[in-house]
Design a binder for these strands. Structure first.
Lengths: 206, 206, 206, 206
DNA sequence: GATGAATGAGGATTCATTCAT
DNA sequence: AATGAATGAATCCTCATTCAT
């Protein structure tokens, strides 16, 4: 039993090592340009050993992506839950999101790239999983906005669209940051919030 | 002279045929999973014939992408120029953008995917060209917003961030539409505009 | 009739142009690396036109090689026939040979390379023709040596081997000249003759 | 350690097997007409396996050529060193040379062909290596002749040209033997030596 | 006759995956 | 369990040759 646990721990440890190396290389060269041999070498294993941990290249890639994505949303949602009130939670949402992206640029680039997402896979593909994560996060934001609506902080209209809008504004700042980095993303947090909350119209203008 | 023209026309025609077939297949399967033989067969040519029109797979892909992207922004900017006033132009911007995306879902999917964008290419790569198109379009929107600012329609703050914001809101609606289609994108135009102009905060709320 | 002649003359002229261009390019890049399109362009013809003059690439190559080879031996043998006596003829043989090689280095390189010589051709291949030319030339030299024997200039032993020997001595000087050029080949003529006539042994040594 | 040695030995063994098969096929069909698949099949490997031993077709070819060439000159020079005196060494030179050629006709044919020798390669190409081997061998013969000169066996003139001459005489006998085999090359050894030492002129003739 | 676009067979090379050791 | 050599299918691209104009 003791032994089993150690084995299990070692297995986990190795698996994580591989995932971390894989992330770096995939991020650098994309799914197709990365070879299994490369990942193995980088992680200090033999090529064949990767297949003890993952079913194949796609599986390795998908696992890496979903685990990271899960981590991302977990972190963001944890940060939000630490916010005192709804405006604070909103700020936490944006800033923790940007923080994660900035600290994991390589991964984020991969995500945007969307490579390796097989379209015609039989069963629940990576694509579906990614969508699910996104939709769940939209729901999460939706709920946050509904809170705000209850508290009369936000308009009482299409909250889902509002959630999309926030995701969108963030997305584009992230996108531009990936494409043409100009200073830290963190500086953009107030702008994003302002844009989201007040729009661009002058007060009172229709 | 007459003859030359006909030849030239035929050449153009064939080239376009190939680009159109290529777009479909690339969109369906991604850059790497698509073979030249497949495109050729689909377009009714022999494999080798593609190389009379394009230097290789990358060239074919890049050409298709940039020509389409150019067309997209040309159409949008033309639609905007037909708008009567700034609000009308803004509406034209969003609705023509959504219209193009809806009519060219395949292409848009590819664009989002961003595959085939070589990272370490020596010279001006496809990636750079795409960024340029985007930045140019951001500039275009920026100018439009500045007009609005002059006319006291918009706040006089960071117009570039405003442009990002609009692009972002549109992006996410497009993204969700690609991922999980629910009705026509065109219906979202008013929502996008409202969100962009007024934000989500209640009037007078900070 | 007049017209036919002109046609015929033009045909010959074009054919020769092609052969000359082909020689240059083949010599520069070898048989396999040279394309028909390249030869055609260089000669100012369309690709397809070459097939009016030659059956294909091999035929073009073989024709060029044999015509040139024929020219080479014709020139040499003509030079020999202008020699006054046997020693003079021998000198003419070596010097005209070296002269031709020096003036046609490109061709000579090709000849040494022996590329494009198909081994398993059904009918009389290029290889066989080249061998025939060589053997004929060996015969020619053989006869010359026999003359010398009659005139008590040469030993009365294996004249064929003597012919080989002369060809060989010349060959190696040509070979070294191709590989590592050092001054004109023409300067080596006396050395070759001396080597051939007297050998390297000291007079009287056995 | 034991294991490493066995692996190493096996690797060497397989590599040699491939080189031997490659030599046969290249000799039969030339560089360009030979396919990697063919060599692999012939050696009992899968196509891809060749690339574990050699970087590519050119590398395989060049390796085969240089290893064999090295072996050839090594053998010849070893045979010479076993000769008692200078005349004996000279005889050993010619006879071991002819012996090697006769036992490795396939290889020799390839060498004469000179195919696969890229002309415009950036770095030290196969061609350069072959030339170096030849020049080194010429040097070797040169030294042998100088010994003979010291011992008053040979004339005291251009020893380098004498070396060329010997190589040339041997070359042509080899060449003729390749082109039109007539009996064993070994029989020609005395003729070659005689030709080299005494020339064709009658004693005392100029 | 001349053209040159279209053809499509052919080949070097890569790499995910397997499996004997 | 770990290894990494062997596999062989898969793909891009070239180019001799043909043939409609």
């Amino acid at each position: 039993m003791e032994k089993l646990k150690r084995k299990e721990r070692e297995f986990r440890f190795r698996r994580t090592e591989i995932l971390e190396e894989a992330e770096k290389i995939f991020a650098l060269k994309g799914f197709h340009e990365t070879t299994m041999a490369e990942i193995a070498r980088s992680a200090g294993f033999a090529t064949g050993s990767l297949y003890q941990f993952f079913e194949g290249k796609e599986d390795l890639y998908a696992t890496m992506m979903t685990e990271k994505l899960s981590l991302m949303f977990t972190e963001i949602e944890a940060a939000v839950s630490r916010g005192r009130d709804t405006p604070g939670k909103l700020r936490a949402l944006v800033s923790s999101h940007f923080k994660f992206v900035e600290e994991n640029m390589d991964f984020y680039r991969l995500l945007v790239r969307g490579e390796g997402i097989s379209y015609s896979d039989g069963h629940s593909s990576l694509k579906d999983q990614i969508i699910r994560y996104f939709l769940d996060h939209v729901d999460f934001i939706d709920k946050l906005i509904r809170e705000g609506v209850k508290q009369k902080l936000f308009k009482n209209t299409n909250t889902r669209a509002m959630a999309y809008s926030l995701m969108g504004i963030m997305s584009f700042f992230k996108f531009m940051s990936v494409m043409k980095p100009e200073g830290s993303l963190m500086k953009k947090v107030p702008i994003v919030l302002d844009m989201f909350l007040k729009g661009v119209g002058r007060d009172g203008a229709s």
